[in-house]
Computed example of a mutant assay.
Amino acid sequence: MSLKRCLTGFILAAIAITAAAFERPFPPQAKRGSFSSAEYPTVVIDGQLRKLSMGLKSAPSTT
C-alpha cells in the first residue's frame, strides 16, 4: 500500500512540475499591463483606478 501511495505522489508531483514549467503562448497583439492594489475596494490597472466587482468584494479576507 505504501508503494502505491509513493508512486501516486511521484506521478502527481511530476505532473505539477510540468504544469508549472509550461509557459503560455500569448498572441503578438496581446497587451501587457501592470496591476497593483490600492485602497479597498479599488485596484490600479495601468495607472487607472478601477473598482472591484461585487462578487470579489464579498470574498472573505482569509482566502
Rank of each mutant, 00 (worst) to 15 (best):
P25W: 03
A30N: 06
T18I: 02
F10N: 14
S53D: 10
A16T: 06
S34H: 08
S37M: 09
L52W: 01
I45N: 00
I45A: 13
A19K: 00
E39T: 06
F35I: 03
I45Y: 13
Y40F: 13
A13E: 04
I11K: 07
K51I: 10
L49Q: 06
S37L: 09
G47L: 05
A21D: 02
L12F: 14
S53N: 14
A38I: 01
D46S: 07
R24L: 11
I15Q: 08
V43Y: 01
T42C: 02
G55D: 08
D46A: 12
F22Y: 12
R24K: 06
R32C: 10
I15W: 05
I15F: 06
I17T: 15
A13R: 06
G47I: 02
M54Q: 15
F10W: 05
Q29K: 14
L49H: 01
S34G: 03
F35R: 02
Y40T: 02
G47M: 05
D46P: 11
S34T: 04
L56E: 09
L49S: 12
Q29E: 09
P27H: 09
P27M: 10
D46Q: 14
V43E: 00
R50E: 04
Q48C: 01
A16P: 01
A30K: 04
I45G: 00
E23K: 05
A13K: 13
A16L: 14
